[in-house]
Amino acid sequence: MNTAAPIFRDATETDLDALLALIQSAYRGDASRVGWTTEADILDGARTDAESVLKVIKSPDSRLLTAERDGRIVACCHLQHRGEHAYFGMFAVSPTLQGAGLGKLVLAEAERHARDGWKVAEMHMTVISAREDLIAWYERRGYRRTGQMRPFPYGEERFGIPLRDDLEFELLVKPLA
């Protein structure tokens, strides 16, 4: 396994196909079951779409950070500047590389950019509350559960097709100072 440090860069429109494949493979379908971040038992369908990814790439207050190894995108995350805080989302690590520390490196780079580049004091994210293993991973990295919940957008297939009726998002927050 290649454990070399990844090369970080902002995504461009030419990365679209690779990003869509990576994000889908990390969360949905049988390919996602190779890793531990799969949502295949709670959601079906697409994790995102080309329009949503392009919007992030083109937005002046966002960046879609990619991590490359050997010229291949192996991880990504969305960062959005929201005044006093940054929002972290669309986090994907290739399922075959999960559990080897790459996710920690990407998260640390995202936090560094938000803190040093945008001078924000906090990072916010929302996680499906049923994903206890994922929430625990974030808690080990300094994020705290807020108890603030937001309903899952049932009926909006661009977020996926729910396989359960109890899905909701919880806000997690981490101070960056």
Rank of each mutant, 00 (worst) to 15 (best):
G103K: 10
I73S: 09
Y87A: 10
W118C: 01
V53A: 01
E39G: 14
V127T: 06
R69L: 13
G103A: 02
G35P: 14
L65M: 01
L102M: 15
R72A: 15
I73D: 02
I128L: 06
L102D: 00
S32C: 06
R63N: 04
E68I: 08
L54N: 12
D49Y: 09
D49Q: 12
H124P: 00
M125T: 04
S59I: 08
S59G: 11
S129L: 08
A75Q: 03
E39L: 11
L97F: 08
L105M: 15
G83E: 02
Q98V: 14
G89C: 02
M123W: 03
V56K: 10
G35R: 08
I57D: 14
V34N: 06
L54E: 14
L65A: 05
V34E: 07
K55R: 15
G101W: 01
E111G: 09
H78P: 05
A110W: 11
W118H: 14
D70F: 08
E39D: 15
V93F: 05
A67Y: 01
G89P: 07
S129K: 13
G117R: 14
R69E: 01
K104W: 09
V120R: 02
K58D: 12
T38W: 02
G71R: 05
I57R: 02
P95C: 03
T96F: 04
S52C: 05
I57H: 05
G99F: 10
R112L: 08
G103F: 07
F88G: 01
F88E: 01
A130E: 11
R112M: 15
C77K: 13
A40F: 12
G101Q: 07
G45S: 15
I128Q: 13
K119H: 08
L107C: 05
I42W: 08
E51Y: 10
S129Q: 12
R47F: 07
L107R: 03
R112F: 10
S59L: 05
M125D: 06
L65G: 01
A108T: 10
S62D: 04
Q98E: 12
L102Y: 09
A75C: 14
L105I: 11
A92T: 01
E84F: 11
G83L: 11
A110Q: 14
K104S: 08
S52N: 09
D61V: 01
M123G: 05
V106Q: 00
K104N: 10
S129G: 13
G99E: 10
C77L: 11
V106I: 12
H81I: 08
Y87N: 12
H78I: 01
L43K: 13
R82I: 12
L97C: 06
T48C: 05
P60K: 00
L54H: 02
H124G: 11
R72G: 06
V74Q: 05
L54P: 09
I57W: 12
C77V: 10
A75T: 00
H81P: 12
T126H: 15
E122C: 09
R72Q: 12
L64S: 04
V74E: 02
A92R: 00
T48S: 12
M90V: 06
G83R: 03
